[in-house]
Design a protein around this nucleic acid. Structure first.
Lengths: 335, 335
DNA sequence: CATATCCGATATATCGTTATCTCAATTTAG
DNA sequence: CTAAATTGAGATAACGATATATCGGATATG
């Protein structure tokens, strides 16, 4: 048993022609019950599995999807992926993932890899500074593509979050509790997402007549958030509340506070963003702008499916709102 | 620009034959500098990307790998994947993931999907109760396969952890601190991994003359671990230390303790397993049996690469040790 | 000057499928 | 009882690439 079973070997085993086996396997054409039976037996005996690469060459059908994102390890992304994969799997699609690490050149190579390997659709979180080259490549191959979180080009569908609206709500929530020195914590470069979120924060600070905005950068991740919060507290001890760029940074900020003997929600208030699974479980549980990453992933996948179904429809824009979810890390400022 | 560029369209653009373009793209054969130049220009202009499906049909080369695991969301798995993907990416392979959810039937379908889509190698965490059918299928297609964590069949390579050795060390550590009522927390069905870990725990308890072993099941995950720990504490308030089946359960157990006003490492000691990134960051930081998931993933990938290189070598067994990493969640029992 | 060698490119067959067409045998209609 | 329709299957040609063989012409060899 060394050679892989093909239509040919099954046909020989069953004593019929190759097209006949093909038709039996797909349930098309006119086949007598007796022949069908014989072919099925032969296929089972040889463990025949059709080769979808060969099939898709001829038929043009592609049932593999690529997903380029920027940080596997981030739970927000993991949950988005899980939602998207669930939906696509049900429709008979196979999803493969590549980590672009927010590097435009790396992303370009990854997209090329997906095209090379015949993916019939792409989901993609475009890195900051993506060259038009990348979009041209996708367009030249006519690959159904949905940009996620950051719009890449108006040629593609886009699924994202109403960022400014969310940070506006977060900032207002803190102000209503009585906070006046509110900082923005997290993110590094001026990515599309961060820009919008800071915009919401800034404009609300100004509108409410609160002090000058204070933006403190931090890479994504629990440890990084912890370290950034430590340096922020050191540099600006008067800050009593922070709006965070993401839950991981927020959880890190809480760790920093607790290490310094302070209690999140009492001494300093913290608002996260995303509502990853761990947010509700943390001690204290994290107040956050919830977007339900799993649902977002399913939305993303369904937009892609629609695009595949109708490649000529005009590019769509889908934005979902985040909802303020008050838990334990926000409260009135200490006297 | 609607039709996807192929060797044919590039050949026409450059005014040469199809095989010539193919040779230029792959850098084989004898091609004059002038022709090469012309072909390259045409390829760039048309955004040509070779179709690896067509190529692999003819050449037999497969550079796609499948990975069937059982829980995307678990950070341990995420880190293993990240290690494996890093290594395979460098060798020019593309990895796709499917979540088998520990269901043998689902796994069988996933493996079939991977075969159908022409994967040239497979990494696989076999579900408990995998039927011989699954191995037969893989064998019939001659697909290089490495079983991860649980050996599926002696036909395949296996990469795993010395589980019994690790829980022996964990239990001994707790006993040396003075604990006598030590429970085992986590896992549900009697999977290969859990069986071995419990075996190490049981035998050490017996060897040290400690009370009857107490095994308390829990699904994987922070929340589940928390709930299981709560019920364990309720049913057996005399337990002063727990050996956990994984870090997520251990972190959940710590949350349960803190919610009950107790301090992990003072009132009750907790030992995790895996050493995921969050373990060191938790408050208090988690004592755990460290296996470095990223390195493990790379090991897994390298075994697969060797298997692909030499399909006829005898099946190998690779086991790595976990090392006790003492942090903040273990200490002498309270008076 | 005839023959052998090498260079640069093309012709052709093939991988495992599916789409389309053909075709003999059987059934139905008139 | 002949003509038309139906049935069940096979023949053939793609899909986009690669492997192998071929081939004219330039160059080198004896």
């Amino acid at each position: 048993m060394k050679t892989k079973p093909t239509l040919g070997t099954v046909a020989k085993e069953a004593g019929v022609s190759i097209p006949t086996v093909s038709q039996v396997m797909r349930g098309t054409g006119r086949i007598s019950d007796e022949t069908r039976e014989r072919v099925m037996r032969a296929a089972k005996k040889l463990h025949y599995v059709p080769d979808s690469r060969a099939a898709s060459m001829r038929s043009g059908e592609r049932r593999e999807i690529g997903f380029v994102l920027n940080n596997f390890a981030n739970p927000f992304n993991a949950e988005v992926v899980s939602g998207a994969v669930d939906l696509l799997e049900n429709e008979g699609y196979l999803v493969s993932l590549l980590d672009g690490r927010d590097d435009p050149e790396r992303q370009f190579r990854h997209i090329e890899v997906f095209i090379r390997h015949g993916r019939g659709g792409l989901m993609w979180v475009p890195a900051f500074g993506t060259p038009p080259e990348t979009s041209d490549l996708l367009a030249a191959h006519g690959i159904p593509t949905v940009a996620f979180l950051r719009p890449a080009s108006n040629r593609f569908d886009y699924v994202g979050i109403r960022n400014a609206e969310a940070t506006t709500e977060a900032t207002r929530h803190l102000a209503e509790l009585g906070h006046t020195r509110i900082a923005y914590l997290g993110g590094t470069d001026m990515s599309f997402v961060r820009e919008r979120r800071i915009e919401g924060y800034r404009s609300t600070m100004a509108q409410l007549g609160l002090g000058p905005p204070l933006v403190w950068p931090s890479p994504d991740g629990r440890r990084e958030g912890m370290e950034a919060m430590q340096s922020l507290c050191h540099a600006h001890p008067d800050v009593t509340a922070v709006v965070c760029n993401g839950d991981m940074v927020a959880l890190g900020a809480c760790i920093a506070l607790m290490k310094a003997g302070q209690t999140p929600g009492r001494d300093v208030s913290v608002v996260g963003f995303d509502d990853i699974d761990d947010a509700a479980l943390a001690i204290p549980p994290l107040t956050t702008m919830a977007v339900c990453p799993k649902r977002l992933g399913m939305k993303l996948a369904s937009v892609l499916l629609e695009r595949i179904r109708d490649p000529n429809a005009p590019a769509s824009i889908t934005e979902v709102s985040a909802t303020l979810t008050v838990r334990g890390t926000t409260g009135a400022p200490a006297r």
